[in-house]
């Protein structure tokens, strides 16, 4: 049984923003799919006094692909991502992550904004989104702002979102033809398991030179993070097996994995090395 709370079901975004601002004298916590929040409430890890359900506002769910951008509504489910033909052409690493995410029941309920807002370092959707240079749109009664996903997380279970702000969109630029984005999830089993190491790579190549390299790592630090020094070793270069190995080694040094019930820190570092090198090799191979 959950601890008691006030529940509101507004049918407009303005209604949500009023409630999370301080609508009943206490800021309400947004609820989307509930696959993380309800579990945390059941375990008494969080005990909000007020909850506001977002499911009465259909405009919050959906995938928009324009000439230049992809935008996901915050309540877009993991299944929506997995079944999207449009994303298969402009965010395939995100589709791979959606496939590896939970089981079908969780995919049918869990949302993209929920996967960001729950602040898990082991999030599956965040590494590919971060490698795609995605931005998070935050709205409150006092206005809206856009934050690079790469700057969204500030520490373990900490982020830049104020309690009066709602994630109202996630967007990224559509990738050029000569680019590849890849994701690999390593876990103790294939299905419905918490990630041990997640690696997303996004690369663009022009005339045999790596023009853009993104490496995002999940479950190996207090937050999902980009291995920026490893990325900068690759940009402007013609990749060789030796350079890829060196960049992958650099990525392991930018992570700070821990020992836990799922894997040791040593195993996680090895996983980063192997998977980063593998994905960089695959991306380079497809683009040259």
């Amino acid at each position: 049984m959950l601890s008691g709370f006030e529940l509101d079901l507004p049918d407009t975004l303005v209604g949500v923003l009023d409630l999370i601002a301080d609508g009943r004298g206490t800021p309400a916590v947004p609820l989307a799919g509930g696959t993380s929040l309800i579990v945390d409430m059941r375990a008494r890890r969080t005990m909000p006094n007020a909850v506001v359900w977002l499911g009465k506002i259909p405009e919050l769910r959906g995938i928009q692909v324009t000439q230049d951008h992809v935008r996901l509504g915050p309540c877009t489910t993991v299944s929506d991502i997995l079944n999207s033909d449009e994303l298969a052409g402009s965010g395939v690493s995100l589709v791979r992550a959606a496939e590896a995410f939970g089981g079908q029941m969780v995919r049918n309920a869990a949302t993209v904004a929920g996967n960001i807002a729950c602040n898990s370092p082991a999030s599956d959707l965040v590494p590919p989104l971060m490698a795609l240079d995605a931005e998070v749109i935050l709205e409150s009664r006092s206005g809206s702002r856009t934050v690079a996903l790469d700057r969204y997380f500030t520490g373990y279970k900490e982020d830049v979102r104020r309690t009066d702000e709602l994630i109202t969109g996630i967007s990224w630029k559509r990738q050029e033809e000569s680019s590849v984005d890849l994701f690999h999830k390593l876990a103790r089993r294939k299905g419905d398991a918490i990630t041990v190491v997640g690696v997303a790579v996004n690369m663009a190549v022009s005339d045999g030179t790596c023009m853009r390299a993104r490496i995002a790592l999940g479950a190996v630090a207090p937050t999902v993070l980009r291995a920026k020094r490893a990325e900068s070793m690759l940009e402007g270069e013609t990749l060789t097996p030796g350079l890829i190995e060196a960049a992958a080694r650099q990525a392991t040094e930018e992570a700070s994995p821990i020992d836990d019930v799922r894997a040791s820190a040593t195993y996680r570092r090895h996983g980063i090395q192997v998977l980063t090198a593998r994905l960089l090799t695959q991306a380079w191979g497809r683009l040259t």
Binding site: L7, L9, L31, G33, G34, T35, I38, V39, W53, G55, S79, G103, Q104, M105, V106, N108, A109, D192
Partner: peptide
């Protein structure tokens, strides 16, 4: 949310009824 014994269909799609409020 782990075991799936509570799975029902919501609008034809399987979901776990223990990680949803009735009101949802």
């Amino acid at each position: 949310g782990y075991c799936g014994a509570c799975t029902v269909h919501l609008d034809g799609k399987p979901v776990k009824s223990c990680t949803m409020l009735a009101v949802q």
